[in-house]
Design a protein around this nucleic acid. Sequence first.
DNA 1: TCTTGCACCTCTAGTCGCTAGAGGATGTAG
DNA 2: CTACATCCTCTAGCGACTAGAGGTGCAAGA
Lengths: 152, 152
Amino acid sequence: MKKITIGEASRKSGVKVPTIRYYESIGLLAEPNRSEGNQRSYEPADLRRLAFIRHARELGFEVEAIRTLLTLQDDPHQSCASADAIAKARLIEVEQRIRSLMALKAELELMVEGCGHGRVDQCRVIEVLADHGQCSHAHHSRWNEIGRLQGA
Amino acid sequence: MKKITIGEASRKSGVKVPTIRYYESIGLLAEPNRSEGNQRSYEPADLRRLAFIRHARELGFEVEAIRTLLTLQDDPHQSCASADAIAKARLIEVEQRIRSLMALKAELELMVEGCGHGRVDQCRVIEVLADHGQCSHAHHSRWNEIGRLQGA
DNA sequence: TCTTGCACCTCTAGTCGCTAGAGGATGTAG
DNA sequence: CTACATCCTCTAGCGACTAGAGGTGCAAGA
């Protein structure tokens, strides 16, 4: 069998080399065989797993969710209810986040449009930031709701 | 003058107590006077500054951007071009992020709709994750573009 | 054969914007 | 005077990597 180096795996999967090692360290990816000189040697299945992980990360799934999805994938006879639940939860997150960002967009547009490019004391950007009362009120309660949740 | 404790400042500004101390530690907020017993004592101006910071964070501005916005606010005779540029950059970020999230939403909806709630080997959620080729292709290049950029 | 130079190895520490907790001091109400 | 809430400082942790130091492996050209 042809040995796939970590660099090749990286190029083929689109996951950076240190990130692959990181995934191994947190147990998302099994420890691969090593060459004579202690270098990692991957197989096609590892590339598929990496692609799966990468795609899930692109879709904003957290590593813990991906871990669950991977164990599901490993045993195809299980019910896919968990996978479905994870995807649905992610969908709801994304929808909330879109709503939140739309409100922010409106807010920012107001600020930018209102800026007369004069001095700071007439600047609507600074003014609106200083006085929350001038907001469209669309985002007032939303922030705490979704918090600092990350993801694309 | 009435002394405002950090707890009161927190309640009035909506910024948590440890976060206020954190802002002080990174120099966003000046070190306040202290009471006899070494407790922080704030003034109305500090509350306004905290509200400004909070609002800017709600709008997803990074701390470094807020630092700039605050120095602008401190000197109202400057040109507001920087403030405008910062707000515009943020607006562009937000717009990109919305587009990206819309693509993800479409993707996730496909996955969730396609799931027949059977076993994993027929599950569209797992299947799509495993094979990027089944995507709508809307998000293919977008991820690297916006990267892991955070913010509401 | 030697050397150049890249790719690989491990390990630690840094990123961002907080948040949590330990362990102790202060302030206030009863 | 005694509870008890609130305050203090300090360190460590979160997620998902990323950067860098300091060293080894390996293939190709002179």
